[in-house]
């Protein structure tokens, strides 16, 4: 194995279902204590990779080690190291917080002797002190979500999988939750996050962008914004909106146009050239231009460009 600090090593992973290749030669490492995000369209292969990492699916070929264990040979031992929390966490509404923790502890094989200290740890970690005997049905979203996390980590897994963990949660609870995740990672837990939402992706140390079974980009959020994109992004104010959209989509050097309120976000090949050319181009078509100014790229811009480029490459006949 390559890096001794690596909690997860994936080498040349392939998974086929019949003639369909769901995962196509994927390789990456995740360090102990790292928060690694998986982004990708529906059906891109994210959940297949995660199921293989959990020891729930056998790879067709390639090597996958989790905590030094081979998932193909020791799937049971791998599963004992893993915690999983999905967006639609399955808490029991008519049980209390502690009863839920006890139930999931039993499910994950936490012994009676271990349970007491683990329970106190989970209650403290999730900030549920004082609400131990509250029925789950009476807890607000943010509390439920931290309780679900407590249930998922009661057996002290070294790897934690989160599936859109803060979707629909209010921003303050969401910030508390991510703070908790970063503190947990600081103790050495490796956290995988699967999401469609770029504001969740911003909380990850590194991001893996998966499309059509392949890893198309891997890096920190800042690296992806700086290096994974071709060109730059401009804010363009131009009216009337409908005609301006059509004109911008056909303008030379323009890669992508998205509407934001009364303005456009335009991805261009070369920022300087576009700043010079676009006012003239739009003016010549009788369109009224306001501000045209460079703005920082978002992860969503990176995602959309990578996936569309990948789709275009796939569409060319082989």
């Amino acid at each position: 194995m390559s890096d001794p600090a690596a909690a997860v090593v994936v080498q040349g992973l392939v998974k086929r279902f019949g003639t369909f290749t769901a995962v196509d030669h994927v390789s990456f490492d995740a360090r102990r204590g790292e928060v690694l995000g998986f982004l990708g369209p529906n059906g891109a292969g994210k959940s297949t990779i995660i199921r293989i990492l959990c020891g729930l699916l056998h790879p067709t070929s390639g090597d996958v080690f989790v905590g030094g264990l081979d998932v193909t040979r020791q799937p049971e031992a791998v599963r004992a190291q893993i915690g999983y929390m999905s967006q639609r966490f399955s808490l029991y509404n008519d049980l209390t917080a502690v009863e839920n923790l006890r139930f999931f502890g039993g499910l994950y094989g936490v012994t009676a002797a271990e349970f007491g200290p683990r329970l106190r740890w989970a209650i403290e970690m999730s900030g549920l002190a004082g609400r131990e005997t509250a029925l789950v049905a009476t807890l607000a979203g943010g509390w439920k979500q931290r309780l679900a996390l407590g249930c998922a980590v009661l057996h002290q897994p070294s790897i934690l999988f989160l599936d859109e963990p803060t979707s629909g949660v209010d921003p303050i609870s969401r910030r508390q939750f991510w703070d908790l995740i970063h503190r947990m990672a600081a103790t050495g837990v490796t956290v995988f996050v699967s999401t469609h939402y770029m504001d969740e992706a911003e909380y990850c140390n590194r991001l893996a962008l998966v499309d059509r079974g392949r890893l198309v980009a891997l890096g920190t959020p800042t690296e992806l914004k700086r290096t994974a994109m071709t060109g730059g992004l401009l804010l363009v104010e131009c009216e009337p909106l409908g005609e301006a959209l059509v004109a911008l989509e056909q303008a030379p050097g323009v890669l992508e146009v998205a509407i934001f309120g009364d303005a456009f976000h335009v991805t261009v090949l070369a920022v300087e050239a576009a700043l010079r050319e676009l006012p003239r181009y739009l003016g010549a078509r009788g369109l009224r231009c306001g501000r045209i100014t460079p703005i920082p790229l978002s992860l969503e811009d990176v995602f959309v460009q990578k996936v569309e480029r990948d789709a275009a490459a796939g569409a060319t006949p082989s």
Partner: peptide, 16 residues
């Protein structure tokens, strides 16, 4: 909800 960013952009384009 649950729609990936590429499809989401398409959807917004239709709304506009």
């Amino acid at each position: 909800t649950g729609v990936d960013p590429v499809s989401r952009r398409d959807f917004w384009r239709i709304l506009y």
